Simulated scan of single mutants.
Amino acid sequence: MPEGHSIHRLARQFQDVFGGRRLRVSSPQGRFAEGAALLDGHIMVDALAHGKQLFLKFDHDLFLHVHLGLYGAWNFGGDSSFAGASSIGAPRRIGERESGPSGADTDYSGPPEPVGAVRVRLVSDHGWADLRGATTCAAITSDDAAKVLGRLGPDPLRNGPGDRDEFIRRLRKRKTAVALLMMDQSVLAGVGNIYRAEVLFRQAVDPWKPGTAVDTGTAGRLWDDAVATMSDGVRDGRIVTTPPALWTDGAETAPDADAHFVYKREGLPCRACGTVVGMAEIGARKLYWCPGCQV
């Protein structure tokens, strides 16, 4: 599923193209008809992301809450004032590169006919957005939103006062393997399989080490690296964790094959020490790591 940087980019795009605008909200598929009716005709006043959760706030204090899950995606389009990516979400390429830019339509006269199972459609005077395949799509109150947020750990991309210390506390109180804790959304919100593998490698942390065995300094460095790499992802719209010195033929942007240290590189030599990169199942997900560097 998309990692936190994609959801923060979604929030930014929604704020840019729909913020302060009155929206027509519908459910062409029909599964969200009751929720759409609650939001229809209201002004979207804010777009918020925390981890992998997106909240679109409307002027009557209701939210559209979306979690894309494995198969969800937003598609966008509009007139010359409507800028941004044309699609964020599944299907995803390695590194979660989004589709875009949207390619504004100079002859725009309204959204196209819905194609496929569109759960919810948002339409302003200048553009539209369609959601398909999401795990969660609900109209909720501010109290409901607070409850969702209360179940989540700190988000490196929000990085508020005390968040670093709270992450360290949550990580170090558990005997679970740190590789699992890095993807536990109640410990660290927004990190998925790619950032998990890459941050653990970059900080030379044994993925099988229990959280209780991770010292405070190392836990702090995991947080700091998640902040840095995920912030790059928000800026670039993709996950790149390697430096330009490792990119093929002096490329200005990282080729997909050079974008990561260990993710999906099982059986290949480690870029740092030459040890064969390993892959194992943990928590029903694939874990990639270097047995030479991460000891």
Rank of each mutant, 00 (worst) to 15 (best):
R196A: 11
G192K: 07
I168S: 01
R164C: 14
D144M: 06
D232H: 15
W128Y: 15
R238S: 04
K147M: 07
K147H: 08
R202M: 12
G127R: 08
T212W: 11
A117T: 01
T141F: 00
A145T: 15
P114C: 03
A138V: 09
F201Y: 13
C137Q: 04
G162L: 10
A146D: 14
G192F: 08
R238W: 02
P112R: 10
T176K: 11
T218W: 00
R132D: 08
P156M: 05
D130P: 06
A146P: 06
P156W: 02
T212K: 14
T135P: 03
G220N: 01
A189K: 09
I140F: 01
I168P: 01
D143Q: 14
R151F: 00
V118R: 04
W223M: 05
M183C: 13
M183L: 13
A139H: 04
V148G: 02
L200P: 01
P154T: 09
Q203S: 12
S124F: 09
S231F: 01
D236G: 02
Q203G: 05
Q185M: 02
G190F: 00
L222D: 04
K209T: 15
W223A: 05
G110M: 06
I194D: 07
P114L: 07
G190S: 01
S186L: 04
V214P: 07
V234L: 00
R132H: 13
V234D: 00
V205H: 10
V148Y: 02
A197C: 14
D165T: 15
A228N: 08
D165M: 13
T136H: 14
R172V: 08
V123W: 02
G220F: 00
P156S: 07
A134W: 09
G110E: 05
V120C: 14
D225K: 08
R151W: 00
L180S: 13
G116M: 11
H126P: 09
W208A: 15
V234N: 01
Q185H: 07
N193H: 12
S124P: 07
A134F: 09
C137I: 12
S109C: 15
V118L: 10
V191H: 06
T212Q: 12
P154V: 08
P207K: 03
D215W: 03
V120R: 13
A213S: 11
E198C: 05
G190R: 00
I140G: 03
M230F: 08
P207S: 03
G217A: 13
L157P: 11
R132F: 07
G116C: 12
V115P: 06
G116Q: 10
K173F: 00
A129M: 02
V199C: 03
V205R: 10
V148S: 01
L171Q: 08
D236H: 12
T218I: 04
G192V: 04
R174F: 00
A228Q: 14
G153Q: 09
P210L: 02
D184N: 11
D236W: 08
V148H: 01
D215Y: 02
A189S: 15
D236N: 10
S124I: 10
L222T: 06
V115K: 15
R196K: 13
G110F: 03
W223E: 04
R235A: 15
A145P: 04
T136R: 12
A204F: 11
D107M: 07
S142N: 10
V227T: 13
L222R: 03
A226T: 14
A226H: 12
V191E: 04
P161E: 14
A134L: 12
T229P: 00
D130S: 04
